[in-house]
Each structure stands twice: as C-alpha cells, then as structure tokens.
Design a protein around this nucleic acid. Structure first.
Lengths: 228, 228
DNA sequence: AAGTACGAAATCGTATACGATAACTATGGA
DNA sequence: TCCATAGTTATCGTATACGATTTCGTACTT
C-alpha cells in the first residue's frame, strides 16, 4: 500500500486502481479535507451516483473507512462521518503520543542535516503563521514538520499508525476541538528543542520522551480548557 | 466493535451480524487458528460456497482482513493468506513492543490483587508447559497472561493495536518463526519480574520499559538465531 | 527440444435487481 | 392536544449475472 503525502493529507496513489479503491480515496479525501464534516450522512446510492460508480465498490470503500475509524456504519441505517467525542479524542491523542514518540526516536539516528534544515524552515513558517493567526495552515505545517522527521522512519507499520491518527484528527478540523493559541507558541519552541536533541544525537530515550510529551502537552491543554 | 477473548484468539461477537461480518469472523478465525496457513489461496467463490453466502459479503470480509494485514489481495489474481517475511516480522514485533509497553504501563495502576494472582497462576502454568515441552499451549497462555494485565486498559485503541499484532503473529504459528526454548524460560522469569513491579507500584516509566524489553528480547532472540 | 503464440478456463470486478429492515409520516383514538 | 399505530418511503443487505483480466495449458514453429 503505497502512500504519498500531498499537502497535509495522506492519500494513496490513485493510478490504475480498482473502483473500490478510487471510491475509498475519494471519500477519505473529502472527510480529511473537511468537505464531509462529522455527522454528515453518507448515502451509498448518492455517493455512487456522484462518482459514477455502482454501490458495491462504494460500500466496500465505506467499510474500509469504518475500519479506520473515519466512518460509523449502522446496519440498515447507514453510514455517517464519524464524530469524535472527547473520550475518543483522548484515546486518539494518547495513542498518537505513543506512536509519534516511537517514530521520532526510531527516525532520529537516520535524519541528515538537510532534513533538519528543512524541518527548521517549516517550523519558522509555523512561527509566522502564529503572527498572522492562520490556524489552518499552522496545522498543515505541523504535519509537514513531523513528516520530514519521519521521512526515513525504519518501521512503516508505526508510520501507518501515525497517519491514521492524523487522518482521524483531521476530520474534526472545523469541529469543537479548538486551536489553543498559547499552546501553539509552545509547540513551535518544542519543535526547535526536538531538533536540537536530534542534531546533538541525544539518546533514543530522551528523544522519545520529548516527542511523546510534545503531543501529550497538546492533549493536556485541551483537557485544561475543557474543564473550564 | 465489541471484542471478546476466546481461548487465545481474539474474535468479535457473532450474534445478529450481517453476513459480511460473519464471513469476516469466520475467515479471520481460520487464519488465526492456523486452518488457513500463509500462502493459502482464498478463492472468493469457494469460500462463499463453503459459508453458504454469496461472493459480495465474502469479498468485503477479505478486504477488511487485507486492511489488517492478514490477507494479501492482488487485482484480478486473488487473495492469499499473508505470509510474513523476516522484515515484516521485525516490523510487527517492534510495533508490538511499543504498544504492549504502553498498554502495560497504562493498565498497571488499575490492576487489582485478584488479577495479579490470576496472572501469576497463568505464568505458573507456563512454567509447567516448559517442562512438558508444549509450545502451542505456552503461546496461548502467554497471550492469556498479558490479556489479564490488559483487562482494565484505559485506552481501547491501544488494546486494539495489541490484538492486531497478536493476530498477525498467530497466523504463523506453524511457520518458520520458531519457538526458542531458552528464550521461553527467560520469558517466564520476566513475567514474574513484571508482576512484582506492578505490585510494588513502580513508576510508569520503569514498567513500560520492562514490558517493552520483554517483547524486544523475543525479537532479539529470533534475530540472533536467524543470523546463524 | 525449446521457445513462442494462441486459446480456454478460472477468477476477479462491477452492475443491476430484489428482499429486508428501519425510519418517517399520517391518521385515528383517548 | 397528545400518543399510539399502521402504512409508506428510504436505505441498506445480498444474490445473481455478465464483462474484464489473468493464468495456465497446448499446439505450433524454429
């Protein structure tokens, strides 16, 4: 399953694929890009008509998306874009903190100075986004930043888990889980700290813990805000 | 998606499900239990006939299994039970070490003395298996042991990742990745050490690292053997 | 004897059709 | 006016049918 990063969303290459795969990619893209928001009702016949396909491949695609947690499918009722309640959000973020931490630690020894420079440039752009208050682009760049670090990740399984988490979170872009400005500035600082650890060839444990904490802090910021 | 542990395999409850779900469970069970070994050719029409279903739900089931990595599907060629080469094995074990470590650490504070006692009993049985040389039962009990520890895991996403890894490994029961006797004895000792850490309310970091190393050591034992 | 090309069989990929189930609406009674 | 019930509609669930692609076997040529 080859995957390529296009912008901030992770989609599969779409050349010479079966219709079920095309449908999968199409619906997934709409969810991740925010065209279909949580709660949106995915009527098989309607999607099939839109794409020019029959219902069978569409159905198959929806089922795959269900397996990834992007879609909720009820028997004889239908499919809707999966919402994500605070509990699900917590599960997803917690899992992401673990797999991102591991991915970062595994990738760190393989990152060359060119990649470091690219990551630093992305982070600099993120800093600028904060000044213009552009949360959407900030989020996209945040994924780009980490994508650069994960470019040479030696374990594709772990990388896949990271992407799944990202897609899951992406579906709520315009949802209730808001961008916390204070946290964003901290995030940029943490990125720089992480880069310095990698440059300095810090031990894997330290890098893993730092990367994990980076994600965990965002979760904590949300929880603190939710409490109020 | 409710899951129940039956013996050493993790299957979904099969009451009042759609045929595609039944087919999914049936084929998955056959793979996990070893009835279908890696390389086995899964002909849609044949499976459909065996189960008394039509091909469409079977096809859907196979696709889900493909998404979980248990089945390999080639366009216009067919589906086969996914083999697992040494590289895949490494990826799977590495990922498992990470998610099992996390699951253990998250569960540890919630494990009561009753569960500890049960886990210890299972471990004792494992020790006996070593004397009678019963690798199959040993493997099953090993999953039981960890299942007890994960009973109160607060994050179902992570638990799901653990189960996926187990299923992936289960499909190779009778394959080339062999049981390493020396490693098994060590494993029993590590289980006891882990239980003592949990009883002693050791800090999460220590527990996580110990649990992770427990899995990693099995991988190392395999790699050392493979090198020869 | 070996290689190539052609044809037949097997299998997947998708569309269409029909049955089953649940949600919705309207109507009648309290 | 509100609630219960029956009928209608929408949507999913599955089966069957047919077209597309690949693979395998056979015959022919060199």
């Amino acid at each position: 399953m080859t995957e390529t990063a296009v912008g901030n969303t992770v989609v599969e290459s779409a050349a010479a694929q079966s219709k079920s795969q095309q449908a999968y990619a199409a619906v997934k893209a709409r969810i991740v890009e925010g065209a279909y928001t949580p709660g949106y009702r995915l009527v098989l016949a309607k999607i099939a008509e839109d794409l020019g396909f029959s219902v069978v491949p569409v159905r198959e695609a929806i089922r795959r998306l269900e397996a990834e947690g992007l879609v909720k499918f009820e028997r004889n009722v239908g499919a809707t874009v999966a919402g994500i309640d605070p509990t699900e959000y917590l599960y997803t973020m917690q899992t992401l903190s673990i797999v991102e931490g591991a991915a970062t630690a595994l990738s760190a020894p393989l990152i060359d100075s060119v990649s470091i420079a690219r990551a630093r440039a992305v982070n600099e752009e993120m800093r600028e986004c904060l000044e213009h208050f552009d949360p959407v682009r900030f989020t996209a760049l945040n994924q780009d930043f980490h994508s650069v670090l994960f470019e040479h990740c030696p374990n594709p399984h772990i990388l896949d888990l990271v992407h799944r988490g990202w897609n899951r979170l992406a579906s709520l872009r315009s949802s209730t889980f808001r961008f916390v400005p204070g946290r964003a500035q901290e995030s940029v600082r943490e990125h720089e700290a992480l880069l310095q650890l990698i440059e300095g060839a810090a031990d894997a444990d330290t890098i893993e813990k730092t990367a994990r904490q980076h994600r965990a802090a965002t979760l904590d910021a949300y929880l603190a805000q939710a409490k109020q």
